[in-house]
């Protein structure tokens, strides 16, 4: 409080900011390293689980009497796919190849796995990203309306919407959207599932239940902020109510909201499978579905590790966002 105490600190202020930036860089590097380790561990775990499943499509094909292979031919084919080696050796080879970008061949189509998934990823990525953006937008609108609308039936309606969204089945939303938008209004063609209109409709189907979860957390967080002293004090200074919401309530509410966005990502990935089926799209969901049916282990392995990697990356981004959103998490090395 005294000048003597504050002056030295003032002089040290720039270096304190630099130290804080250094700490953040170290924190980001450490978190990124941890994320990489998680992806590698996921690869190992998925590989071992898939290897432990009894039987594989090659053995099934080779052993069936109709195929008519000789034992020597069988052994040759097995050895070509590396199936005659111990699991751990196969794991190490597979990992080594993966690091070099070689993800193996699909067992059912003999195409490279990268090609099989590479063809499917853009469609799914477009769907998932659009869905996530839509979900966040819908949630933001609902959240803000819940605070900006005066208390009354309309506000009550806005606050009830997330529950309605959550309890409506995904496929029902999809079918209604198709019926209304494509069949009745003719806004997009059912023939071309990759058209912008179709993608948007599919993304909306996916986004609605996901937005509900985000909106619920956001509304609760906004209400919580609204009850805090700083909201009352800001209002007492003459800040108009809408500005109190935008300037004082929103940012503290982002922390839990961002957290839940990371959590609902699983829903987006899982939901994309159903949505792709409803809208007749070919995406990662369809590929995975076929791979499961055909016991196509290399494709499954990469698809599962890929979803794990998406999870890890999104949560890494969220972790790195925390200190930026809340200055209280900055100073002390961000040990969260």
């Amino acid at each position: 409080m005294s000048t003597a105490a504050t002056l030295p600190r003032r002089a040290a202020a720039p270096s304190a900011a630099a130290a804080s930036a250094r700490r953040y860089a170290a924190f980001a590097a450490r978190r990124t390293g941890q994320a990489l380790i998680v992806v590698v561990l996921a690869y190992v775990l998925v590989f071992l689980v898939l290897a432990a499943i009894p039987g594989d499509p090659i053995s099934a094909q080779l052993d069936s009497p109709q195929a008519g292979y000789t034992d020597a031919e069988k052994a040759q084919i097995r050895s070509f796919h590396g199936l005659d080696r111990p699991v751990l050796v196969r794991l190490l080879i597979s990992l080594g190849n993966a690091v070099r970008g070689d993800l193996g061949l699909s067992l059912s189509t003999s195409q490279p796995v990268t090609a099989v998934l590479g063809a499917a990823i853009p469609s799914t990525l477009a769907l998932a990203v659009t869905a996530l953006v839509l979900a966040v937008l819908i949630a933001a609108v609902l959240g803000l309306l819940s605070r900006l609308l005066p208390e009354g039936p309309l506000n009550g309606f806005v606050r009830a919407l997330p529950t309605v969204f959550l309890s409506t089945p995904n496929f029902l939303i999809g079918l209604v959207l198709i019926q209304v938008l494509a069949v009745n209004l003719g806004l997009f063609s059912l023939v071309d599932p990759d058209s912008a209109g179709s993608t948007l409709a599919a993304a909306l189907t996916l986004a609605i239940p996901v937005s509900a979860q985000i909106a619920q957390v956001l509304i609760t967080a906004l209400d919580d902020s609204a009850g805090q002293d700083y909201a009352e004090v800001a209002a007492s200074r003459g800040l108009p109510p809408a500005q109190v919401v935008l300037r004082h309530l929103l940012r503290p509410s982002l922390l839990p909201t961002v957290t839940v966005v990371g959590l609902v990502l699983g829903e987006v990935l899982g939901g994309s499978l159903i949505t792709e089926t409803i809208f007749g799209r070919t995406g990662v969901g369809t590929v995975v579905q076929k791979a499961v049916a055909a016991q196509d282990v290399p494709v499954l392995l990469v698809a599962v590790v890929l979803s794990a990697a998406v999870f890890v990356v999104v949560n890494l981004v969220i972790d790195l966002l925390y200190p930026l959103l809340d200055p209280r998490l900055r100073g002390t090395e961000g040990t969260r």
Partner: peptide, 14 residues
């Protein structure tokens, strides 16, 4: 208005 608890009366993230 001068509030009771200065620790909670300013927005912590701004």
């Amino acid at each position: 208005f001068v509030p009771q608890d200065p620790g909670s009366s300013l927005n912590p993230v701004r």
